[in-house]
Design a protein around this nucleic acid. Structure first.
Lengths: 182, 182
DNA sequence: ACCGTAGCTGACCGATCGGTCAGAGGTTTG
DNA sequence: CAAACCTCTGACCGATCGGTCAGCTACGGT
């Protein structure tokens, strides 16, 4: 019973995202994804060149968004960058929370993945903006703490409304960085 | 050339910890661990009943410490619990940063592991203490953010001295929670 | 000198992994 | 109608996984 042509591919990708987020990239096998998508394992590899190609397609949008954000932030200096950095990062994290879950589930290996090659540099720039262009250890630890705290909180399934979550994450991050939250 | 009796077991465990922290539990094979420990794969399974038994032995101390901390915190109420919770959690995180790296590398599956069965309840109590016994969404988000931020920062290899790191993590966490850092 | 046992190993096992391939079935095109 | 094509599948493949097992070596007790 073949489905209409274009839907299956998207359907497979959705199933893969759900399973990757729940069990990690290694933890979700092609067999599992095929079962979730109600198709054969061979069908997965008809629509995608490899398991890795699925991951690449899933992680490209968040990686590109992060790269774009870090580029915008690079144009601002010092104090002006902090709040946009916080708001931008919180927004990204919430939009791509499932993709973040994948990355956290496989962090060590994942950072070697080509599609995430932009991350170290982008995160460095983000941390630089969060630290208000300061290179003191304190600022760097704080930036790391904000990046980690936001990512983990968003990846966890905390039962809080989205707007509330966004507001609290933003204010919490600014407080962590020592900025008053007017 | 057999080594003196008791050293090999500890040597294997050290190798396993290093590789698990670097590549995750699934990502590090018995073959890899054997190579790192300069012994045969069969030798690993002479000293340990299974790969899982190695993980259990590695994660038991941090799991037990977390349980003990949450028990101490349960005896304190409201405001009195916040600072001990912060200091206790930061201390644990720094002491067991490699073990935390393992858990982060495999978070989804890991939480189903028997030896980590204590974590959900202990983390709930820790979050409760961090939130000053408040059940408002804001306090819960902040607690999650602190727990995540500290864990990620410690698991990352930030090039900062240990005492500096501890002080900054503690003050940062208190700021995130909205406490003044005198 | 003999034996029992602890430490360790190479060879091997079944299971599962990601991936390949020839071809079935349906739709579109000439 | 037939040829070309897209979608999808069952059967199969080599590699790698965690784990087993018979047996080798060295040493301590008697």
């Amino acid at each position: 019973m073949p489905r209409p042509p274009s839907t299956m591919r998207r359907h497979i990708l959705d199933s893969a995202l759900r399973l990757f987020a729940e069990h990690g990239f290694k933890g979700a096998s092609l067999h599992d994804i095929a079962a979730e998508a109600h198709c054969s394992k061979a069908s997965l590899l008809y629509h995608f060149a490899s398991k890795d190609a699925m991951l690449t397609e899933l992680l490209t949008p968040p990686a590109e968004s992060l790269r774009a954000l870090s580029e915008e932030l690079a144009a601002l200096d010092g104090d002006q960058a902090v709040e946009p950095a916080v708001r931008g990062y919180v927004g990204l994290a919430m939009r791509f929370h499932l993709e973040i879950k994948i990355i956290f589930a496989e962090l060590p290996d994942m950072l070697g993945h080509p599609v995430l090659a932009v991350i170290p540099r982008a995160v460095d720039q983000l941390a630089d903006a969060l630290a208000g262009r300061s290179d003191r250890p304190r600022a760097r630890v704080m930036a790391q703490m904000v990046i980690g705290g936001v990512a983990v909180t968003v990846a966890a399934d905390v039962d809080v409304e989205q707007d509330m979550m966004r507001a609290e994450l933003t204010q919490g991050a600014l407080r962590t960085l020592g900025r008053s939250t007017s």
